[in-house]
């Protein structure tokens, strides 16, 4: 099991745990995620969103495709009633994670906290789907 922790000074902290070593998943695997929220005692959370998505990164606009989305508004499932949460989803067959030269495809889990008012806090955690090795610059090929 791998763990990722994000910390923003005097801001919420969301710790996400993946169910696979090195966050490495296969297509059609079931992705299971557990998370823990800390550091938002002073603010009231009105909703939490879970999402699993792929996005592109590189020299182009960022495109994204949301594979799984869930919005939790039940007060019993969010702080201060509970600071932990979990969700799972079977992964699709594509796209696979890809480290290209000007196009990269990444999968990630996002947990977004909505505070009273118009503010939200999002935490994003990247994981791998498939085993495609990175491409390299054409000039680097001898």
């Amino acid at each position: 099991m791998t763990t990722a922790t994000d910390r923003v000074p005097s801001k919420p902290k969301i710790e996400v745990q993946f169910d696979r070593p090195h966050r490495q998943h296969e297509p059609r695997d079931t992705l299971a995620v557990r998370y823990r929220i800390e550091g938002c005692d002073g603010e009231r959370i009105c909703a939490i969103e879970h999402s699993v998505l792929w996005y592109t990164e590189g020299k182009g606009e960022e495109d994204l495709g949301v594979h799984f989305f869930q919005r939790v508004t039940d007060r019993a499932m969010m702080p201060p009633a509970t600071t932990a949460g979990a969700f799972s989803t079977p992964l699709p067959q594509s796209p696979l994670s890809y480290e290209g030269v000007i196009v990269k495809v990444r999968w990630c889990v996002r947990v977004r906290l909505f505070f009273d008012g118009s503010r939200d806090f999002v935490s994003e955690h990247v994981f791998n789907v498939g085993h495609i090795p990175p491409a390299r610059m054409p000039s680097a090929r001898a």
């Binding site: 590189g58 182009g60 606009e61 495809v105």
Partner: peptide, 14 residues
């Protein structure tokens, strides 16, 4: 055998 599959989105493509 470890090739990336064809990929297309609104602004990016392989």
């Amino acid at each position: 055998n470890i090739a990336m599959h064809s990929f297309t989105s609104a602004h990016n493509a392989v």
